[in-house]
Design a protein around this nucleic acid. Structure first.
Length: 984
DNA sequence: TAGAAAACGTA
DNA sequence: GTACGTTTTCTAG
């Protein structure tokens, strides 16, 4: 019989033996899956559903090669094992089994039988020992073995013939992954575990030795016995003493963690051969469970008319076995349903469609109410280690920091919270202060873990490549941790996931997200710290209140992730999130941390000059007005100009006050009035002085001496970033006076600033998206695009074109990008609305493709409520169909603009995500400091300037590839100088 | 004293 | 006509 025939019995070389760690699977699936219940009687079946989907994939060998020839699902029979005999505390710290998980154990056994697969359990032995024994016997016959589990205790089995497979993360675990986890080859895993112990299983190990240290010691001494024998040689005093004192404890631990490979098997290996399931029985089971999708698939595969099959009568809703299950009894034994092994990690939803999974998660988001009484305040390092072990085991953890302020570059950490499952969350206070308010007697409260110890414990978790860290607005926490020497990775950010899905439609802060998706209102910050004058800093908040608040934040973040993450796949936005959003967290955090240098002396000098200028102007203004008034007050100014002086042509603001905006004053100045000109000049100086010359130095960081802005990733509807505190995206450039501010942004000694900006990127994207050949050609030929537009529209040759003609065409081009209206264009060009309307008409006649583009975009937005950029980013406009025509028109213009502005934003995001890697690959030490929508600012050592510019330019110009191949070339101008003004 | 409005800096 | 953030003044509480 051929070796790969699934119907033979005896195991041969070439066979593939699959061993499923059933108890571990159930537990992980339970925590990772939404709490799915059978619709007719609310019987909890989430883990069962995941399990059935996985078995189906296995027996059909879908994405799992080669096809299994032998397969067993192995369970823990009872808690009493030989390990308990030698160490009664073994696994003594197991939490109580959740109510809605208990009945799923017998159901999973039923499922296994329905698939006609072997279901193995044996009194006195853990599932792990049975798996080890089967694996050993299979190997002896030369067969390949796959153990389906991610339990670290099974990793000692991995070798050339045995691999593991994590069903939740859908990834194989081989020697390499084991090394990643333990720092040693699989055959030495037992020695590491014997030394490091395991808080989850309550294996003692040697105090003070963790996985890292254990691996390092074993690398040096070879194995546990040699190490223990030569313990005297160890230099570190405490470590040496512990190894000597606890040598026996280490040997005991080895007995506990070493899997038994010679269990006398009740079910021989040859008996677990895979046979094709009997289709009807399987369908009967699945129908009873009410798994409609899988029932249909199985029916199709076996060509069974599923309508003709009756659901399993005992197991269907109302059936006898179901009644026992809901009473908490195992239908077979009529005893309380078996507990089973309790340690393990996530995900058995793989076989659900993304849409079904997403819908299930949303539907069940409110199923488990937030219960703050279940949160824990962690006060000891040992307990913290247990939480960390739990997080590592599950491979997923939500994290939140609490600090003394809102600026991640200056705030000090006060504590942090972790969440590993709904309601399974803790807060770890680190730096809460208390007691009297005396100047010198302020002290840390007791029962807090020392900061350095907490950081040392946390670092391996937060940097662990196999544990996903989830945050809400993670860039903040990422920076806080970075300042503690921790680089968080890998990570997800619920705020950014929400932003990808719902930009423009709903807010992305935690409170609104919690209310919208979880129906839950979290504790307000004010409830913990007060507000207004009486507000206290978080480090003075009562620890019990702080703990509830902080743990809830982590809990809510985890729940939001469970709801929102599946929506990405369901709505086809995974790529947008993974290429345009997630990578920017670390990129922007690094930029913010670097900051930029400013010349404070220069700004101080400027401030003085501006003050002088303002003083002179104020004197002239008083003189002209005939009285002293505040030129900064639009109200007083309006009264002077249009009341006292009776100047005609005044306009009113929407609130009925006189309008004194720059455009109005400019007009009056042109009519020959002297006062408005002075006001305009005064306002310019006032703006430059207060917003820039005076404010910027107050943002200089006391330690770095540089200015660290904050970039918001989820603030705009279009995908642009925004910058604040201070806003470095609106540093003056248009006037000579303003550029003097810009000159105060300088490179560090021995460095230059490089400014690289996209030329006309939005117009190029208009040519691309509206597919306008003449515009495209103009860009390909490197023509002056505004002159070319003017020439096309007005029939004027480009050579010797009057400046005014080009200016009008330029205004029209910008108008198109902004969604043009005759009203707006007329305003911009100070021409009658009819004339502006005629320009637009002529433009559309000359470029009919662009009118079509605008119509299409408008119609699409009206129909769908959103538009999409070139890269699939969605920008929502919920008011696009408003009854109010001006609101509607506004939304239409915004939607038209969003495709262009948003596509440009996507392109520079792609460039930024790749930039650090490209610079590193080119061995350049240039550092990205700022982004200003179409411009990137770098700080570069003098000698690397020439080599850096081409790299930067290439990354930027090629940023759309390979996702989108533009027909229009992108052009990037780049220059280096000592200061930002000259580089720009 | 908190928030809206007006003004203005950028792409 | 698009997209932002900051400062000052004004106003309602």
């Amino acid at each position: 019989m051929p070796a790969n025939d699934p119907h033979h019995d005896t195991v041969d070389a070439g066979d593939h033996v699959v061993l499923i760690d059933g108890s571990a699977y159930i537990f992980r699936a339970y925590h990772a899956l939404p709490p799915l219940t059978r619709s007719s009687d609310k019987l909890p079946v989430g883990a069962v559903a995941g399990f059935c989907n996985m078995l189906w994939k296995l027996v059909r060998a879908q994405g799992f090669e080669p096809k299994p020839t032998h397969l067993a699902v192995v369970f823990d029979k009872s808690e009493q094992t030989f390990r308990k005999d030698i160490y009664p505390l073994y696994k003594a710290q197991r939490p109580e089994l959740p109510e809605d998980l208990r009945p799923q154990f017998p159901l999973i056994r039923e499922a296994t039988r329905a698939f006609d697969l072997a279901c193995v359990e044996q009194a006195g032995f853990e599932a792990d020992d049975l798996i080890a024994t089967y694996a050993e016997q299979a190997k002896a016959k030369g067969a390949r073995v796959t153990v389906i589990s991610s339990d670290k205790d099974l990793m000692q089995l991995v070798d050339d013939l045995v691999r593991m497979y994590d069903p939740m993360k859908d990834r194989a675990i081989g020697a390499e992954e084991v090394f990643e986890k333990f720092g040693v080859a699989p055959e030495k895993v037992v020695d590491v575990q014997s030394l490091a112990g395991d808080s989850v299983d309550n294996v003692p190990g040697v105090p003070g030795i963790g996985i890292k240290t254990a691996a390092q010691l074993l690398a040096e001494y070879g194995n546990l016995d040699t190490l223990l024998a030569r313990a005297e040689e160890i230099k570190q005093t405490k470590r040496r003493e512990n190894l000597i004192e606890f040598a026996d404890q280490a040997r005991l631990s080895r007995q506990l963690v070493t899997l038994k490979r010679d269990v006398p098997l009740d079910v021989p290996l040859d008996d677990i051969a895979v046979v094709e399931p009997e289709g009807k029985r399987l369908v009967a089971f699945l129908k009873a469970m009410e798994f409609t999708t899988l029932t249909r698939r199985v029916g199709e595969a076996y060509e069974i008319d599923i309508a003709a099959v009756e659901p399993d009568p005992g197991l269907k809703a109302g059936g006898e076995e179901t009644a026992l299950l809901t009473a908490g009894l195992d239908p077979e034994t009529r005893q309380p349903a078996a507990p089973g092994d309790v340690d393990s990690t996530p995900d058995g939803e793989a076989a659900l469609t993304p849409q079904a999974l997403s819908a299930a998660r949303i539907a069940h988001a409110t199923a488990t109410p937030v219960d703050r009484s279940r949160y824990e305040t962690v006060t000891t390092p040992a307990r913290l280690r247990e939480w960390i072990a739990r997080a590592i085991d599950l491979g997923i953890v939500a994290v939140d920091t609490e600090t003394t302020g809102l600026d991640p570059m200056q705030a000090e950490i006060v504590g942090f919270s972790l969440a590993t499952a709904p309601n399974e969350a803790c807060y770890v206070p680190l730096a809460h202060k208390g007691g009297d308010e005396g100047l010198f007697s302020e002290g840390l409260l007791p029962d807090q873990i020392p900061l350095n110890e907490a950081v040392a414990a946390l670092k391996p978790l937060l940097e662990d490549a196999s544990v996903l860290k989830i945050g809400q607005n993670l860039k903040y926490d990422w920076l806080v941790f970075r300042r503690l020497g921790i680089e968080v990775a890998p990570y997800d950010d619920t705020m950014l996931i929400s932003y990808v899905l719902d930009a423009g439609a709903s807010p992305h802060g935690m409170d609104p997200l919690s209310m919208r998706w979880l129906g839950h209102t979290p504790i307000k910050y004010e409830e913990v710290c007060g507000k207004g004058k009486g507000q206290i800093c978080f480090d003075r908040a009562a620890i019990d209140k702080a703990s509830e608040y902080a743990a809830e934040d982590a809990d809510v973040t985890l729940r939001l992730w469970q709801v929102l993450k599946p929506r990405l796949a369901a709505e086809g936005k995974t790529n947008v999130y993974e290429t345009l959003e997630r990578p920017l967290v670390a990129v922007l955090a690094r930029m913010e941390a670097r900051g930029i240098m400013i010349d404070r002396q220069m700004l101080s000098r400027l401030s003085g000059e501006f003050a002088q200028g303002m003083g002179r102007l104020e004197a002239e203004i008083s003189e002209m007005a005939g009285e002293t008034f505040n030129p900064g007050s639009p109200k007083q100014l309006g009264d002077i100009l249009f009341g006292k002086m009776q100047i005609p042509g005044g306009r009113k603001t929407p609130t009925g006050a006189w309008s004194t905006g720059a455009d109005v004053l400019e007009e009056l100045a042109e009519q020959g009035h002297a006062l408005p000109r002075r006001i305009l000049d005064w306002r310019q100086l006032q703006k430059l002085k207060s917003t820039y010359a005076d404010a910027l130095p107050t943002y200089v960081h006391p330690e770095t001496g540089r200015v660290h802005t904050s970039f918001a990733l989820a603030a705009t509807t279009t995908g642009r970033l925004s910058s604040s505190e201070p806003n470095l995206q609106n540093i003056p450039v248009r006037t000579e006076e303003g550029r003097r501010i810009r000159k105060a942004f300088i490179a560090a000694r021995g460095h230059k600033l490089i400014s690289a900006d996209y030329s006309q990127i939005e117009l190029r994207l208009l040519a691309e998206i509206a597919d306008t050949p003449s515009l495209r050609q103009a860009f390909q030929d490197g023509l002056d695009i505004h002159a070319m537009t003017a020439s096309e529209m007005f029939g004027v040759p480009i050579e010797g074109m009057p400046g005014e003609v080009r200016r009008r065409a330029k205004a029209i081009n910008f108008g198109i990008i902004y969604g043009i209206s005759a009203f707006g264009l007329a305003n911009q060009l100070s021409i009658p609305r009819e004339e502006a309307g005629a320009y637009i008409k002529r433009y559309f006649e000359r470029f009919p493709g662009i009118r079509a583009y605008m119509d299409e975009t408008r119609n699409f937005a009206r129909e769908h409520g959103y538009v999409e950029t070139l890269f699939g980013r969605r920008c929502h406009y919920p008011d696009i169909n408003a009854k109010n025509p001006s609101i509607r028109a506004f939304n239409e213009r915004a939607a038209i603009n969003a495709r262009l502005q948003g596509s440009a934003a996507d392109i520079i995001r792609r460039a930024m995500a790749r930039m650090d890697g490209a610079l590193e690959k080119a061995r350049l030490s240039a550092r990205m400091l700022l982004q200003v929508h179409d411009e990137l600012i770098f700080e570069v050592p003098d000698e690397e300037v020439a080599a850096t510019i081409p790299v930067v330019r290439e990354v930027m110009e090629l940023a759309p590839f390979p996702a989108v191949a533009l027909k229009v070339p992108l052009k990037v101008d780049a220059r280096a100088a000592e200061n930002w003004d000259e580089a720009h």
